[in-house]
Design a protein around this nucleic acid. Sequence first.
DNA 1: GTTCTTACA
DNA 2: TGTAAGCA
Length: 128
Amino acid sequence: MREKELRRSLAVLPIGTVMKLTSLTARQIRYYESQELIFPKRSDGNRRLYSLADIDRLLEIKDYLDDGLNMAGIRKVYDQKKLERERQKDQSHQLTDDDVRKILHDEFLRAGGLQIPGSQQPSVQKPF
DNA sequence: GTTCTTACA
DNA sequence: TGTAAGCA
């Protein structure tokens, strides 16, 4: 099923379509890019092109934001994921959804510097 | 008409 | 984050 993966990664959607599919404003989408949360391709007149994978990524980012994480925190989670993916190359360990939840949990415990300044402490104190 | 970058009430 | 400005 590699061809399917390939298609999910094909960047062909303009920001306008992404806005409708994610309910995010162009401002937010571009801002997340500046925070290195997403990496859309560029094309013709320097226009951003997104893939279906990017759409999922943006929806995922929205969820993390609801969980009280800020840009830095989310990026940290993705960086961890990437490290695990690489570590997985020469080892037989794979990052499972449970691992991700654990990472998120740890983030909560010491999210002091990652928590959004003067923000809504997640209503759900112990979602884990 | 749509997107891009930059800047600021 | 919103939004306006000036380009492409």
